[in-house]
Computed example of a mutant assay.
Amino acid sequence: MSETDSILIVEDDKDIAELLKVNLEDLSFQCDTCDRGDQAVTQIANKHYALVVLDLTLPGLNGLEVCKKVREFNPQQPILMLTAKSSELDQIIGLEAGADDYMTKPFSIPALQARVRTRIRRSKSYFQSVINAHDKGESERHVVGDLSIDSTCREVKVHEARLDLTAREFDLLKHFATHPEQVFSRSQLLDCVWGYNHDGYEHTVNSHINRLRTKLQTAVGNNSIIQTVWGVGYKLKTENCFIHH
């Protein structure tokens, strides 16, 4: 079992934590548990986890605060937030804080297992392709205006300065860059970037688009690189878009 197969469960309800641990270990993942937000930040800083399953309500630091602190030192750490709050506003706040995804309690164990399996499988598959490209001396770089998107290194730079994106934000930007001018609905983006499509999770796409636009606005003074096609979805404008191999 390697660290790439490890999951951190951050949950202060011991019964729920044990339930999650048993059912995720059934998928052959090694699971660590933690019941405080401040301790979770320390554990994530000291060990690589394929996924952090993070409860919203925690002692020490709540889930939102944990997300924000983790994003400061590890922007690409995958985080799945669990919340008993199912309102639209609560979901958006969790995503805006830096969570890659969320599930609301109560949830079915099979649904959680499927979500975790999909997330980790896609992550491992992508990173393996990156390793293979490095071994072969291959690289692919997309240039969008002042942005340089290196798929091999999973880096986005603005005039040689690195732009810190979460793993999901990078995947979303890269997906648009490889399909310039193609319009994608929220449903299609959930399929292509998240690897699943469930009713009610369109807020996941909206929040990531908004967060990505904010970072692009700060970095390059332009938040219209990803454009809204009203009533349909989103697209990347083709102006100054190039691909280098």
Rank of each mutant, 00 (worst) to 15 (best):
T178N: 10
E169Q: 14
R213V: 02
R213L: 01
D191N: 05
E169P: 00
I131S: 03
V183P: 08
L173V: 09
L172D: 01
H198L: 09
H179F: 14
D171K: 09
S129Y: 12
L189H: 15
G221H: 13
D199G: 13
C153D: 15
E140N: 11
I225V: 08
A219V: 13
D164Q: 11
G231F: 02
T204R: 09
G231T: 01
F176D: 00
H179E: 12
Q227G: 01
I226T: 06
L190K: 15
V205S: 07
N222G: 04
R213W: 06
Q217D: 11
D135P: 09
H159V: 15
E160A: 08
V143Y: 12
Y196S: 00
A161M: 04
I225Y: 03
V193I: 07
V183C: 11
P180Y: 07
E169A: 12
L190Y: 06
V143N: 15
H175E: 04
T228G: 03
L147Q: 03
Q182P: 05
G233S: 07
T152R: 12
V183A: 02
S148Q: 13
Y201S: 02
D171W: 03
K124I: 11
V232H: 08
L163H: 11
F176T: 00
T214S: 06
N197L: 07
Y196Q: 05
H198Q: 15
R168T: 13
L165T: 14
D164L: 07
D171R: 04
